[in-house]
């Protein structure tokens, strides 16, 4: 039994097939990279996993349980956390309160929630900004807050949607370190990323899609050398 699997996922928006038959497995403890050109259906795949969109057809299975008919908040409580490509900070709440709100998915008293939130904020390296309003954070801080908040829900599987986009080189290194640390702590990760050297260094395996369909899957080396992937990214002229 796979730890996590999507089977033949399809999503139509009107007449447009944003995702058109994507399947993959994720093993417990690994980092799976999900790549593809702009508009290829990566975020839509995440949105189906976390139930923001109902799949037109196909199945999502987490630890042997079909989850694609469950509402978003239940998916979180089952142990799948996510970040948003377009960040969604709870703007007029402090960083700490953002993370406390997330921690309440696992504990019930304020003391417990605060303890879990402070621990998570420390783990994510946000202690110095914990009392700032979320809306006052620069983009790197907001991206990090997305991760901290998701981590406070204690996910077994974490979906990261372009958490490295818009970061400068120093912030990028810090982000990669954090993602590795999360995996080393036992959380399985699916990561969407456009920055090639990030996805290539961090992923154990890579699943590549284009126009909503799988074009390649394998180790970073195999996928980087794959003809279809090179064509998708560089255009047929370069292939």
């Amino acid at each position: 039994m796979a730890f996590f699997r999507v089977e033949e996922l399809v999503k139509y928006f009107g007449g447009l097939a944003a995702v058109n038959g994507v399947s993959f497995d994720v093993k417990q403890g690994e980092i799976l990279g999900l790549i593809g050109p702009n508009g290829s259906g990566k975020t839509t795949t995440f949105n189906m996993i976390s139930a923001y969109h109902r799949p037109t057809s196909g199945r999502v299975i987490f630890k042997g349980q079909e989850i694609h008919r469950l509402p978003t908040h239940k998916i979180c409580r089952l142990g799948i956390g996510r970040t948003f490509q377009v960040v969604k900070p709870l703007g007029r709440m402090s960083v700490l309160d953002n993370v406390i709100a997330a921690a309440y998915s696992r504990v019930n008293t304020h003391a417990e929630a605060q303890a879990l939130a402070l621990e998570t904020i420390g783990f994510c390296g946000m202690t110095p900004v914990k009392d700032q309003l979320a809306k006052s954070l620069p983009i790197a801080g907001r991206k990090r807050l997305e991760i901290a908040r998701a981590m406070a829900t204690k996910p077994e599987l974490l979906l990261l949607d372009e958490t490295a986009a818009g970061l400068n080189p120093t912030e990028l290194i810090e982000a990669i370190d954090l993602i590795r640390k999360i995996r080393d702590n036992g959380t399985t990760i699916i990561i969407i990323e456009h920055i090639m050297h990030v996805i290539m260094t961090i992923s154990d395996r890579i699943h590549a899609i284009n126009f909503g369909q799988t074009i390649a899957e394998g180790t970073p080396k195999e996928v980087a050398a794959n003809q279809a992937v090179i064509e998708a990214y560089l255009g047929t002229d370069y292939a």
Binding site: T72, C76, R77, G81, F84, K88, P89, L90, M93, R149
Partner: peptide, 10 residues
Amino acid sequence: EDQDAAESLG
């Protein structure tokens, strides 16, 4: 503050 974010936090 954000209903979608709230859902994702359980």
